[in-house]
Design a protein around this nucleic acid. Structure first.
Ligand code: FES
Ligand code: FES
Lengths: 143, 143
DNA sequence: TTTAATCTTGACAAATTTAGTAGGGTATTC
DNA sequence: GAATACCCTACTAAATTTGTCAAGATTAAA
């Protein structure tokens, strides 16, 4: 159960956008180079993030992408939700309105999925891009 | 990021085998019916579990499958590892010997993947089939 | 106003995974 | 030897993953 490159590339890209926050737009090309992501593929990923309302675009020369909100307000969970769908082991433990599992009562695995889901969300819903940035700074200082 | 049916069916099947522990082999057909899993497909899944050393088979009439160890000693994590591969968001935070991520130092997302991985394993490596069985019994009693 | 930078959209596609289906073979028991 | 049940392999339709490519729209800057 490894995440797809969508989530892995996408979070790296959002980190770069977080670093840049408040300093104007940054073109995709730069992000793609820094994080070694195929530029054309990243284009598709950032389109998803744009539609999810996490970033906005500025067209034309000197244009690029920028975050709509400060990195303190954007959680890892929001990014992964947009790119990977609900971060839960089964649909029935998602907040989505589809209860799907009719067998919910009497289902022997539901309890497990709920516990896994909660533990994942404890992490990703509290961790923001700002936390990632701070962590990165402190590991660099140690070298 | 929803688990595939491999993991979802497989854990349900292991639950049934856990219930049956100590009472002789149980045929696949019964498990498939109780948990509504296509029998032929379950055959492939249980082959994986057998190769992983979690169950053994008894051939012939009155045969079937049984768990090698008591349900207290089998964790959800062992089952999911066999069926879904490492339960981590990225390869680099797996115990496997492939360090893959050459960029580990300087990687901005690794910290996130580590935290997610730990929180998942906190749950699945401590939860056993016996826990699932007990939980199931207590929810039935409440009705 | 022209040019270059940049986003936007949509098409295409190879490789892999998912979620089965089908069927013949083998071992065991009654 | 008939019934039961595991064992193994092959096949497949559909979806997802992981991109690549090309044409066009928009805007800033020269
Ligand atoms: S897997 Fe959803 S209720 Fe059982
Ligand atoms: S994703 Fe593995 S070290 Fe960065």
């Amino acid at each position: 159960m490894i995440l797809s490159t969508k989530g892995r590339y996408g979070l790296k890209a959002m980190f770069e956008l977080g670093l840049q926050y408040g300093k104007g737009p940054i073109p995709l090309k730069v992000i793609a180079e820094r994080q070694t992501i195929p530029e054309n593929y990243l284009e598709q990923l950032i389109a998803i993030l744009r539609k999810a309302g996490l970033v906005k675009s500025v067209r034309g020369a000197q244009g690029g992408y920028l975050m709509l909100r400060p990195p303190e307000e954007v959680t890892v969970g929001q990014v992964l939700l947009a790119l990977e769908g609900p971060m839960a082991p089964a649909e029935c433990v998602t907040d989505s309105e589809s209860p799907k599992c009719k067998l919910a009562s009497g289902c022997v695995t539901r309890g497990v999925w709920e516990k896994i889901s909660h533990s994942i969300h404890d992490v990703i819903d509290t961790m923001t891009l700002q936390h990632m940035i701070e962590e990165q700074i402190s590991t660099i200082e140690k070298e």
